[in-house]
C-alpha cells in the first residue's frame, strides 16, 4: 500500500495553482487535506501524475463574516478549525453540529471544508449541509471567478460542476434568518463511519407560525446528496405538526430518494431510515425555530 510516484508541486498563490492546472490538465490532482485522496493513492486506485498541494497557498484558510451577515469559509479551512470556530457556531450552527460526524478528530485535523465538497462523496455529511442551507461555492478558473449554488454543484457520483482548470476557493453560507431552525441526524454503523442515511434539515417559520421554507437534504441515498422536494412540499405553507413531519418523512423515504443496497443496508432499510430521520430532524429543526408543533394536520 505505497502510492505510485508523482510529481509534487507546492504553489503559494491561487494564480500559481490555476497556472499549474492549466499546464497539467487532467494529469494533475489537487491535494487539500488529502484524507480521501491519499488512502486512494495508497491503494493505488488513484495514480495522479502530478499532485498540486494547496496547503501552502495563502489566503484560503480564513473564516469571515460575510457582508450580508453570512459566513465565508476559505476552501482550505480545516474541518477541525471550523468545528472549533466561535464564528461558525454562531453563524452556522448546523455546520458546527454536523462536523463531529465527519470521520474522526485526526481526520478533521487535516481534512478541509473545500476538499470535502470538491470530493463530492454522496455519503459525505458536508455536501448535504450545504444543500440544506442553500450555500454556494466560489471557484476560480482560467476565465475568472464564478459562484455555483450547492444545488448545481453536486452533479453525480463524485461529480461536481467544477470545470477543468477550476479551483474551489471559498464556501459562502447565507445568514441565519429569524424563525429559522436546523438539525442534522444520521445513522451509521459506527461513530465516524459514512452514514447509511443522514439528513440535514433547515426550516424557516413565518411569524404566524407557518412553515415558510423547508430544505431537507439527504446523504447516502443516491449518487449524490439530494434535496427531498416532495417532503418539503408537505410542509411549506403549513403549520408544522407531527402529522406533517410524518408525512414529510414518508415522502422523503418513499418518493424523493433512490437508494441503492450495499453490504450495510438494503433499499428497504435505507428508505425506512430516511423516513424516520427526516421526521426526527424536522421535529428538532422546528423546535429550534421556536415553532410550536401541532398534533395533526392544521
Amino acid at each position: 500500500m505505497k502510492p505510485a510516484p508523482f510529481e509534487y508541486r507546492r504553489p503559494d498563490t491561487v494564480e500559481e495553482v490555476l497556472h499549474l492546472l492549466a499546464e497539467y490538465g487532467d494529469e494533475a490532482k489537487l491535494l487539500a487535506g488529502g484524507q480521501s485522496l491519499i488512502p486512494t493513492m495508497n491503494f493505488r486506485l488513484a495514480q495522479p501524475a502530478v499532485l498540486i498541494d494547496l496547503n501552502a497557498v495563502k489566503g484560503l484558510d480564513s473564516v469571515d463574516e460575510a457582508d450580508d451577515g453570512g459566513l465565508r469559509l476559505g476552501a482550505m479551512v480545516r474541518q477541525a478549525a471550523a468545528e472549533r470556530s466561535a464564528l461558525v457556531a454562531e453563524k452556522v450552527p448546523l455546520l458546527a453540529e454536523t462536523l463531529p460526524f465527519v470521520a474522526h478528530a485526526q481526520i478533521r485535523n487535516r481534512g478541509t471544508i473545500g476538499g470535502n465538497l470538491a470530493h463530492a462523496d454522496p455519503r459525505s455529511e458536508l455536501p448535504a449541509v450545504m444543500l440544506a442551507l442553500g450555500a454556494s461555492v466560489r471557484v476560480r478558473g482560467p476565465d475568472g471567478e464564478r459562484s455555483i449554488g450547492a444545488g448545481d454543484f453536486f452533479t453525480g457520483f463524485f461529480g461536481t460542476a467544477l470545470e477543468e482548470g477550476e479551483l474551489l476557493t471559498e464556501v459562502v453560507l447565507p445568514p441565519a434568518v429569524e424563525g429559522g431552525g436546523q438539525a442534522f441526524l444520521e445513522v451509521s454503523r459506527r461513530l465516524g463511519d459514512y452514514a447509511m442515511v443522514g439528513v440535514a434539515a433547515s426550516v424557516v417559520c413565518d411569524p404566524a407560525g407557518r412553515c415558510h421554507r423547508a430544505s431537507i437534504a439527504l446523504l447516502s441515498v443516491g449518487s449524490r446528496p439530494m434535496l427531498a422536494e416532495q417532503a418539503s412540499a408537505c410542509l411549506v405553507g403549513e403549520r408544522p405538526s407531527s402529522a406533517a413531519v410524518l408525512a414529510a418523512g414518508h415522502a422523503a423515504g418513499n418518493k424523493d430518494i433512490d437508494p441503492q443496497a450495499d453490504m450495510h443496508a438494503s433499499v428497504a432499510y435505507r428508505r425506512h431510515l430516511a423516513t424516520v430521520l427526516v421526521r426526527r430532524a424536522l421535529t428538532a429543526a422546528f423546535e429550534r425555530a421556536g415553532c410550536v408543533m401541532g398534533e395533526g394536520a392544521s
Partner: peptide
C-alpha cells in the same frame, strides 16, 4: 492500515493529532 482508519500511526503535527499514513 495505511488508509487512515486504525489510528496506530497518529503523531502530532504542529500540535494536532494526524494520521501520519495520510500525510506525505
Amino acid at each position: 492500515c495505511e488508509h487512515g482508519v486504525c489510528g496506530a500511526c497518529t503523531v502530532l503535527m504542529d500540535g494536532a493529532a494526524v494520521r501520519s499514513c495520510l500525510v506525505f
